[in-house]
Design a protein around this nucleic acid. Structure first.
Lengths: 193, 193, 193, 193
DNA sequence: AATGAATGAGGATTCATTCAT
DNA sequence: GATGAATGAATCCTCATTCAT
């Protein structure tokens, strides 16, 4: 009986290392060796478990998106009422776990990856669709037919804040980011009366 | 018979080729040879004129930012009144010359480049500052003390629309983009009353 | 519950898989993993039983030579008279079991292996010697002193037909091959009168 | 004005080195670096000029076949009458330039390469066809309708002698080889009377 | 008996960069 | 002014082999 069950452990470590490495270097030009070393394994093992660099990067991306989605879902579950739902989505987007230096850098690079890799593109599109429908579902009761447009505005603003954050080295300002978007929302709600 | 004055011509061709190549590949992983070939010269010449790949990329970036700035300035000159100035900035941002598939891809990649290269970062920061002060200057007469916040909101939304556009292959929808941001502006203006 | 007597079974399966894999790929560039997978075991087991890739390949080679030798011997036993012996050797060489696409490919590759591995070389030399002495023994009563030369001619022709077969994908033409060599033999016999 | 015209020189050196290296190692498992080093250049240059290992090997093969073909043609030109033509082909096949330790090893490995590479296969098939038609053309006046069969016999015997030579390290015995095949031819000619 | 886990060594390939002309 | 020639360094990937269980 050989040592068993290492695969999920190694894969998780490698995925985490991938995100960290992309975050640290701010680029997709990360060598498999760097990732593997950070995960404490040989680069050969990384290839063994993932098949190739492309898949390693994708796994990292999937993880970031999954983490993000999970936090949004959790926030939604804990929210109350339509307005609460929208607030929850916005808050989750800038929550400390998501709105982190390395994660933001990773996001940025995933957009770049999507330019090249259809798989990466698909993942991002799916994420965007989910975000959109979440927002629309929550906004409908509040602003009716304008929901899709406002959803688009909120989503764009969130992404914009992310990309701008990527440019500034410092610790992300979650509160500032959140209030910027929420002010927008408030205005939209006031505006309809 | 040494050709005189070839340098600016070659450099311009190389810069243009750089942008095109980044746009076409959607990535900074462009080889100097590719760029040089597109410009119709040898890669050695590219090095001769620019010193290295880093500088070539930076020149491309500078060019994109300069083009963008020039268009904004031109729009501002032709504009009338504070509101006209803001409209002009928004319109220029999504004008067909700027809001183009390859240029958008280039922008995205410059944000990535900025993660690594201090020079690139500086260029982008300067661009953002100028954009911000342009917006604030125009907004001040309209909304007074809220101008900086609204400027931030507009800028974030513009960048967000750009990055989202980078994900979708099709021809950019300038009108949709512009009206999204302008609706936001309209709301802000209405909101103060 | 340790299974007893598994070793010969596994080894046989691995040897067979080796030949099949070489035949299928037409090359010695077969990974131990491929062989092991075809045999339904882990590559570690293959090493455990054989010691290394070199030995695995050699075992495959030994098997092919042994199969060949066994068929020749069987044919000799069933043959009648000197002429019958020679015919038997030729027929056995192109018998369907030996003159098969994958086996032919394996043969070819064993000649290559012999260039590198002294062991492989020795095996082939032994095979050739046996073939030669078998032929000479059968030919002596028929053509006396010319036996060695004719044996050499027959052997060369057989090998030549094999190598040429390796080049053409189709099903080997046993009859054509056999009659080519036997015509040569007939002529030799006629020629002495 | 850069250094010019190096390409054909380098390519020739690399091709020669390829053959030598295959001959020396007796295998296609030759690294591009080995070849390049023998040719006195970097492995990068080898890739630059040939595109990849596959093409390098093929160029080597092409060269061997071309050399062989050239020698056969030269021998044919210098020959007299039908019988002279056949003799010339046989003699050229075992001429010292062709029937050399490393060249023989290269031939053997090209047959292996042909198992994998359609291009290599095509080259060998072309060579065989030419050899066959050369032989048939020369044999027709001598033995009429039997020409194709005898041509096949001669060709098979030549290839067989080659492959057997590959197994024995020593200096090839050109005379022995030639007389073996020519005895076969003599017999065929005598036999028809 | 058997295997999943793991790696070190090596190889093809790419590319920015330099240099002589 | 311009380029073909050339390379060193780096990267992805493969694979035989070992080991603990």
């Amino acid at each position: 009986m050989p040592k068993l069950g290492m695969e999920p452990i190694r894969k998780a470590a490698l995925v985490e290392a991938t995100i960290a490495e992309i975050g640290a270097s701010g680029s997709l030009d990360v060598t498999v060796s760097q990732i593997a070393k950070r995960a404490g394994v040989s680069s050969a093992l990384a290839h063994h478990y993932f098949g190739g660099k492309e898949q390693i990067l994708q796994a990292g991306m999937r993880q970031v998106l999954a983490d993000f989605g999970a936090k949004v879902r959790a926030a939604l579950v804990a929210s109350k009422g339509p307005r609460g739902r929208v607030d929850a989505i916005i808050a989750a987007s800038f929550e400390v776990g998501n709105f982190r230096r390395d994660v933001v850098a990773a996001w940025l690079n995933f957009y770049v990856l999507a330019q090249t890799s259809p798989d990466a593109s698909r993942l991002l599109v799916v994420y965007q669709r989910r975000m959109h429908s979440n927002l629309v579902y929550a906004l409908k009761p509040l602003i009716g037919v304008r929901a899709p447009d406002v959803a688009r505005g909120i989503a764009a603003m969130i992404d914009g804040v992310y990309i701008r954050q990527a440019l500034h080295g410092g610790t992300p300002d979650s509160n500032g980011a959140r209030s910027l978007v929420q002010d927008y929302l408030d205005m939209c709600l006031r505006d309809q009366a």
